[in-house]
Amino acid sequence: MGRAGKALRQVLETYGISQNRLAVTIGINRATVNQWFNETRDPLAESIPDIVDALETLNPVAATDFLSLYLGRPAPKD
């Protein structure tokens, strides 16, 4: 599967964000997040902004890390 699932798994594990919490924040079914997390299905391109917005709400650093991992770019330095 693609890079998004791997990036999402890493970010959720690193920052202790549950799949359920992300799903509720996005407003989708937890099973969908679970499919992304377990890389059985990649999020659609249209879902990436929703993931980033939800992560920004939950933990802005997690959102930045997700984007860096997803895009394959180093995280910006402060």
Score class of each variant (00 low, 15 high):
residue 53 D to E: 06
residue 11 V to C: 06
residue 14 T to Y: 07
residue 21 R to G: 10
residue 22 L to S: 08
residue 60 P to C: 01
residue 33 V to K: 03
residue 56 E to F: 05
residue 18 S to Y: 03
residue 52 V to H: 06
residue 75 A to Q: 15
residue 12 L to A: 09
residue 73 R to A: 02
residue 64 T to P: 00
residue 4 A to D: 14
residue 4 A to R: 05
residue 47 S to E: 13
residue 78 D to N: 11
residue 32 T to H: 07
residue 10 Q to W: 03
residue 48 I to Q: 02
residue 61 V to T: 15
residue 5 G to A: 03
residue 25 T to F: 14
residue 15 Y to T: 07
residue 39 E to D: 12
residue 26 I to S: 02
residue 67 L to I: 12
residue 16 G to D: 12
residue 37 F to L: 05
residue 51 I to L: 12
residue 70 Y to L: 15
residue 26 I to C: 01
residue 71 L to E: 14
residue 7 A to L: 11
residue 16 G to A: 06
residue 24 V to T: 08
residue 58 L to C: 11
residue 10 Q to Y: 07
residue 7 A to K: 04
residue 76 P to Q: 13
residue 41 R to E: 04
residue 19 Q to R: 15
residue 62 A to S: 03
residue 12 L to V: 05
residue 11 V to P: 06
residue 36 W to K: 09
residue 38 N to A: 05
residue 34 N to P: 00
residue 23 A to S: 13
residue 73 R to V: 03
residue 64 T to W: 03
residue 63 A to G: 05
residue 68 S to D: 09
residue 19 Q to M: 14
residue 28 I to M: 01
residue 7 A to N: 07
residue 17 I to F: 03
residue 74 P to R: 11
residue 54 A to P: 02
residue 52 V to G: 02
residue 54 A to W: 02
residue 72 G to T: 02
residue 28 I to R: 04
residue 3 R to I: 12
residue 13 E to M: 12
residue 38 N to R: 12
residue 48 I to S: 07
residue 62 A to G: 08
residue 45 A to Q: 14
residue 68 S to W: 00
residue 28 I to L: 05
residue 5 G to T: 01
residue 65 D to F: 01
residue 35 Q to L: 03
residue 76 P to E: 10
residue 33 V to T: 06
residue 61 V to I: 15
residue 51 I to N: 01
residue 74 P to L: 02
residue 23 A to W: 07
residue 48 I to G: 10
residue 78 D to F: 04
residue 8 L to K: 08
residue 43 P to E: 04
residue 61 V to G: 11
residue 1 M to P: 08
residue 56 E to V: 03
residue 30 R to E: 11
residue 59 N to H: 15
residue 73 R to M: 07
residue 9 R to H: 12
residue 70 Y to D: 02
residue 17 I to W: 05
residue 73 R to L: 07
residue 48 I to C: 12
residue 24 V to G: 06
residue 64 T to M: 10
residue 24 V to A: 08
residue 43 P to S: 07
residue 32 T to N: 06
residue 13 E to T: 06
residue 53 D to F: 10
residue 67 L to N: 09
residue 43 P to D: 07
residue 7 A to R: 00
residue 28 I to E: 00
residue 14 T to S: 14
residue 12 L to N: 02
residue 17 I to L: 11
residue 51 I to G: 03
residue 78 D to S: 13
residue 19 Q to D: 04
residue 13 E to Q: 13
residue 45 A to L: 13
residue 14 T to L: 14
residue 37 F to W: 09
residue 69 L to I: 07
residue 6 K to V: 14
residue 33 V to A: 10
residue 56 E to Q: 11
residue 18 S to H: 05
residue 1 M to Q: 08
residue 64 T to A: 13
residue 40 T to S: 09
residue 44 L to P: 01
residue 66 F to H: 06
residue 70 Y to E: 14
residue 15 Y to Q: 02
residue 3 R to W: 13
residue 14 T to V: 14
residue 19 Q to A: 08
residue 41 R to N: 08
residue 47 S to A: 10
residue 69 L to S: 10
residue 3 R to E: 12
residue 55 L to E: 02
residue 13 E to Y: 00
residue 47 S to N: 13
residue 18 S to E: 07
residue 4 A to T: 07
residue 66 F to S: 06
residue 31 A to P: 04
residue 7 A to E: 13
residue 75 A to N: 12
residue 10 Q to D: 06
residue 35 Q to R: 12
residue 19 Q to N: 11
residue 28 I to G: 01
residue 9 R to W: 09
residue 57 T to L: 12
residue 70 Y to N: 10
residue 76 P to L: 11
